[in-house]
Amino acid sequence: MTVKNHFPAGEAKSFDAGGGLTRKVGAYADNAMVVEVHFEQGTIAARHHHPHEQITYVISGRFEFTIGGDTYIVGPGDSLYKQPNIEHGATCLEAGTLLDVFTPHREDFL
């Protein structure tokens, strides 16, 4: 992969993932990726798992996250860590935006 150092917001394309969820990939390289995720109220991100480490930072809104067997209610400024292959999912309680960081990058998002 050719290294790119600047990812202008105006060049990023939003991807409608369905069910009230929209993603916009920001900067990425082989070992890391940042993704802006917009949720409409009531949107459910079904429980899933993947081999990537993931950190989620709540920019706005309120969410109920389940990670493994634990459930958390989170809002602006809160963050969450998901280790590789742990089952996790979320329900959007109040429309908002998350910032997800993955390592390595998610090939399926490109």
Rank of each mutant, 00 (worst) to 15 (best):
R23L: 12
H49G: 13
G75H: 06
P51K: 09
H6A: 14
A17S: 08
T56L: 00
N5S: 14
P104G: 12
G18K: 09
G68D: 11
G19K: 05
Q83M: 15
F65V: 02
D108R: 10
G42H: 10
P84N: 06
G18Q: 10
F102L: 05
D70A: 12
F65G: 09
T43P: 05
T66H: 08
V34G: 03
E11T: 12
S14W: 15
A90F: 01
S14Q: 15
I55H: 12
L21H: 13
G10S: 07
E11Y: 06
E53K: 05
A17P: 04
F109I: 03
D78Q: 01
P84D: 00
E107S: 04
I67N: 01
A29Y: 12
D100T: 04
H48C: 04
G19C: 10
Q41E: 11
Q83D: 15
A9L: 14
P84A: 05
H88T: 03
G19P: 10
F7K: 03
F109M: 06
T22P: 07
H38M: 06
T66Q: 05
A9D: 14
V101H: 03
M33Y: 02
K82E: 15
D100K: 01
Q41M: 02
I73R: 03
A27S: 11
K13V: 13
A95Q: 00
G42M: 05
Y57F: 13
H6Q: 14
V37H: 13
V35F: 02
N85W: 07
K82P: 07
F7N: 04
F7T: 08
E87Q: 13
S79V: 03
L21C: 08
L93V: 03
Q83E: 15
L99K: 04
L110V: 14
A17Y: 02
A9P: 11
T22F: 05
V3D: 14
P51F: 07
A95G: 10
H48Y: 00
M1N: 05
F102M: 05
G42W: 03
V37P: 02
G10F: 01
H105Y: 14
V3G: 13
F15K: 14
P8N: 09
Q83R: 15
A17E: 08
S14N: 15
K4V: 13
R62S: 11
A90H: 06
K82S: 15
K24D: 02
M1V: 06
R106K: 09
T22H: 04
G68S: 03
M33N: 11
F7E: 01
V74G: 08
L93Y: 01
A27R: 10
F65K: 09
A46N: 09
L93D: 01
G61E: 01
T43L: 01
S14Y: 14
D30F: 05
P76T: 12
D16Y: 06
G89N: 09
K13S: 13
H6G: 09
F109L: 08
T2M: 14
P51T: 09
Y81W: 13
Q83V: 15
Y72V: 00
G69H: 12
D16E: 07
I44Q: 07
T43C: 00
